[in-house]
Computed example of a mutant assay.
Amino acid sequence: MLRIHFTSRDLQHIRVARRPHVLWELVCGVCRLDTRQGALEFGHWRRSVHEGLAADPRARRALLPLQTLIPSVGYIPDFLTPSAPGGDLAVGLDEVRATSRTRLTRELSRLAESRPLPPWVSTLDRPGSKGLVTFTRAMELSARTLLEPYWPRVRTAVGNDVELRSRALLDGGTSALLNTLRPHARWQAPVLEVDYPVDRELHLEGRGLLLVPSYFCWRRPTALADPTLGPVLVYPVAKHPLEIVRASQDGLERLLGRTRTVVLAHLAGHGARTTSEVAAAADIALPSASYQLGILREGGLVASRREGQFVRHSATPLGLRLLDER
C-alpha cells in the first residue's frame, strides 16, 4: 500500500491533469503490450500493435530499448516520465534528453539491481555519448506506433474522467475529489491509502499532488519512485468495451478474439451453461474454457453461480449488448 500524507497546504494544491500525458501513456502502454492484462480492454489494441510491428522492422527495433528499461513489473526509472506541461511529447522528450548524468546513473543503477541490462544502457550516462538522443528517437517512434492510432480514444476516455473529477470537486471540494479515486484509493484524512504493489510512505510536505488520469494504466495507480520529485499519482480511467466494438472495423471478434466471441454467443443463445458444456460447444479443452470464461467474467460480460456441484455461466446485460452491436 502507498500511504500519501497530506497537510492543509497540500489539500489546497491538488491538481488534475486535463489531458493525457503522452510519456506516461507510452510507459504504461509498453507495460501492457507483452502481458495478458486487460484482455477485454487492451486485447484489440495489442493485436493491432503487433500487426503493425510485424510489418515495420524499424518500429520493431525502436521498441526494444524501451522494453529493456520498462519492465511490466517492478521499478521503472523516473526520468522516462518527466512532468511536461500538458503531457506534450516534444517537450517531454526534451526533458528526457536533458536528464543529468548523475540522475541517469542513479536510476539506471537501481534498475540494474532488479534485472540484467545490456551493454548499450551504460552509454546513456556516458559523457559525450549520443545514447540518450538515440533513445528518445526510439521513444518518439514507439509513441507513434503504440499510441497515435489510438489517441482519439485515449483523449476521450481521459476527458470523460476529468469531467467526472471536476464535478466532484465543484460539488464537494477536495475531499469529494479524493473519494472519487475508489476503489483504487481510499481517503482517510489526512492520508490517501492507495492500492500499490509495495509498502511506501509519501509525505507531500506542502508540494501538493498532481493526479494524472491514464488510459493504459491498469488495475492500480502508479507513482514516481523518487519521493524528492514532484508528487504524481497516475491512475486508470474507465474503459468502455461497447464503444470499442462500435468503433472497431472488425467488431466484437477484434475486441474479444474469436474463441471468447464464440463462448459469449453460445451463452447468450442457450442460457446458463456449465464449463463442460461451454467447452464442448466451442470445441476447446476444459482448461481453456475455464480460462476464457474467467476473462469474460473479469470484464463483466459473464456471470457465474454455483448450483450444487456445478458452476453455471450466463451472459450479463453488458455481454448481450455487445453481441447486439456486432
Rank of each mutant, 00 (worst) to 15 (best):
I4Q: 06
F6I: 01
R9F: 08
L11P: 05
H13A: 15
R19W: 14
V22R: 14
V22C: 09
V22M: 13
L23Q: 08
W24S: 05
G29P: 07
C31L: 11
T35A: 10
T35S: 07
G38V: 10
A39S: 09
L40R: 03
F42Q: 02
S48A: 15
A54M: 15
A54Q: 15
D56T: 04
A59S: 15
L63A: 12
Q67F: 01
Q67E: 15
T68N: 03
I70Y: 02
I70F: 07
V73R: 14
P77C: 05
F79G: 08
A84T: 00
G87E: 01
D88A: 13
V96C: 06
R97D: 15
T99D: 02
S109F: 11
P119V: 07
W120K: 04
D125P: 05
R126Q: 14
P127N: 05
G128H: 06
G131C: 02
G131Q: 02
G131F: 12
L132K: 00
T134A: 10
A138P: 00
A138I: 00
P152Q: 11
R155P: 01
T156G: 05
A157F: 04
A157R: 10
A157W: 04
N160F: 01
E163P: 00
R165Q: 15
R167S: 12
D171T: 08
G172K: 11
T174R: 09
L178Y: 02
N179I: 00
A189W: 08
P190C: 11
V198L: 13
L202K: 01
G208N: 08
G208H: 05
G208Q: 06
L210Y: 02
Y215V: 03
Y215D: 10
F216G: 01
C217F: 09
C217K: 04
R219I: 02
P227C: 09
V232Y: 06
K239L: 12
H240E: 13
H240L: 08
L242P: 02
I244S: 11
S248E: 14
L256T: 05
H266P: 00
L267G: 00
L267Q: 04
A272S: 15
R273Y: 01
R273V: 03
T275M: 04
A280D: 13
A280C: 01
A280Q: 09
Y291M: 06
L293Q: 07
L296E: 04
L301I: 08
R306C: 01
G308K: 14
Q309G: 14
Q309E: 13
F310T: 14
H313T: 03
P317E: 14
P317D: 13
P317L: 10
L320K: 11
L322H: 00
R326V: 06
R326L: 14
